[in-house]
Amino acid sequence: MKHRSLVATLAVLGLLCALPPFLPRFYVYIASIVLLTGLLATSLNLAIGYGGLYQFHHTVFYGVGAYGTALMLTRAGAPAPVAMIAGPLAAALLSLVMGVICVRLSKLYFGMLQISLGSLVWVTVYRWYSFTGGDDGIHGVPLPDLIASAKGSYYYTLAVTALSLLAMRRIAGSPFGKTLQGIRDNPVRSEAIGVDVKRHKLAALVIAGFFGGVAGSLFVVVDTSAFPDMMFWTYSLEVLIMCLLGGMYTFWGPFVGSSTLVLLRVFVSVYTQYWGLILGTILSLVIIFLPDGMLGFFARRFRKGEVRGA
């Protein structure tokens, strides 16, 4: 079993490495977007799937990660490695601050307060023309030659995504990850065995925010831009949908869900401009006709599935 999953992972990685020479430039770009969006969805899942935290505005960290990196490269003229790490660190820091404020609440109130805080960040970025470029965003971010080409940025994205997923998988299968699942399942019991629930939640939020920021900094590499729509609330809802469709209680579910949606969107857009209609229909059918909700459906999967064995 161990061997098989290792072989499968290596096979997928090998395939992804071999892809670019056979693809037109545009599809290499799309492949990069698929990877980093998968990373974004997986990072959200760490909070909402494993921790049961209603992280309703996750893309704020994605956006801040992107702006952090983009601003470092443009305004500060920092070396690329510094900029690449500055974005995620900014996202983690923001996540810590927001977490301290939100973590005393639970469920819907947590989600609502997070939406409020996230919207404040969004509107500030949106209006602060002199610093963030306002609603135009930042375009044409200069990158080192190595990662400036479509292929270069693809390989960079692939490497960072793979490492991040590996790290998150490790975290999910660690004592911390297990404790987090315990907290999602029963916070009262967790406290009664001596677990400081709030601090564990906070730690989970910071980790999720950090990796959300990593995805954001990758977006800057792939698209050479950052703009406020990345952190608008409805995009957070879209990422939630990706997690939901793929399966929140599994580690790889959100990655599968996000890849499916990103690719579907690219191919459907060729034929129709009514992507929202299609996505909305799929989503509502899934929610309505799996009577347990996808959560329950995947909960059962999850018990027999990979996270269990991790």
Partner: peptide, 13 residues
């Protein structure tokens, strides 16, 4: 929890 290992993110549980 008793052994205070719940913040350990590196080991395999």
């Amino acid at each position: 929890s008793r052994e205070r290992k719940t913040y350990d993110i590196f080991s395999k549980v």
